[in-house]
Design a protein around this nucleic acid. Sequence first.
DNA 1: TTAATATTGGGGCATTTGTCCTTTTAGGAA
DNA 2: TTCCTAAAAGGACAAATGCCCCAATATTAA
Lengths: 187, 187
Amino acid sequence: MIRTNIELLQYIEKLRKENDNNSFILEDFSPKHKLIVQNKATYYVYIVKSGIAKCYLTQDTGSDFIQEFFGEGELFGEIETISEGSSFCSVESISRLFVYKIHKSHFLELLKEDNKFNSIILKTMANKIRYKAIRHSHNQSNSIKSNITRLYSLFPYFISDISKQDISNYLGINIRSLNRILREINH
Amino acid sequence: MIRTNIELLQYIEKLRKENDNNSFILEDFSPKHKLIVQNKATYYVYIVKSGIAKCYLTQDTGSDFIQEFFGEGELFGEIETISEGSSFCSVESISRLFVYKIHKSHFLELLKEDNKFNSIILKTMANKIRYKAIRHSHNQSNSIKSNITRLYSLFPYFISDISKQDISNYLGINIRSLNRILREINH
DNA sequence: TTAATATTGGGGCATTTGTCCTTTTAGGAA
DNA sequence: TTCCTAAAAGGACAAATGCCCCAATATTAA
């Protein structure tokens, strides 16, 4: 639910220290700021330094479906950069958010020239695929109750960190259903 | 639904022609053969030459959820190889299936030494992430009817190529619901 | 402070989807 | 051919989920 990638974050920070004229720029956003907007061109790749953001798709019906919550070290914008399309989702800060951003062209350069970086990105993307597969598989073939129970066991405090509306959008259900089940679980 | 990756297939076949002692082995499977088994170690990465396979996760409840159908050029086994875990899904032939297989260690070697190959794999993985995101987003926030209608427009002949049970498992619904909606759509 | 707005919680009902079961049809093996 | 099994189709009812509504509480703005 709240994804992190400490190995990547540490490597980025190491690169920043070693290189003075480095390509990573630290930025600071307050909540509800959109860093990436669905269907718009993107110019940067981002890595979360601290805080939480949500990554979501807006459907034709107007409803949002949240793909992931990004925490420390999470990477985004890389898909758009590597496969050269406009953005297929939006990314918006939930809490105060610090990110390192790097221009597309520098990101692609690093991918080519830095073997270690290349291998970390490959691993990061492999993990995203694995995680998505498992999550969506569970979500699509189990009841809401079982999905929420699963979240409780994986992320005991998700209820306090994330709004009910966002949790609903993450589960692909409506907020009434979420409340109904939460009530049932807590007697 | 039936994913393909012609660029990758062509590149593999080019490598095979240029290199006599190449690392890709052509194999031939009849339907219902499991090439990868969930939770077991894997030793190879595969690329589909022709035919169709399904990639699915089996839940604790015993039900299967189909991630994707793999057609020409689709890659699998790469996640397990890159992120070094046992398999998180099973892959099973649906039709007669020809695949190129390559040993994990050779795959990793190619990734390091062949820039073009590296870049094709990165693009392939980026596309998987994008595709999964869009599919699951739609599937989780729309009715069965709208999901089936979407399949019809994307893959007009899916009904004739794939069994009803597999379609149900792909949509994360039960077969009764599938039949009910199909009937409704066709009056 | 007060007013305005967003978030949370839940009642009541409609709709969708799942479960169980039976029949029909199609295809393969003996 | 006949038998066996798997796939497909659908009736009837139960359970899960969505939708619309309103009230209570918390948060933000003036």
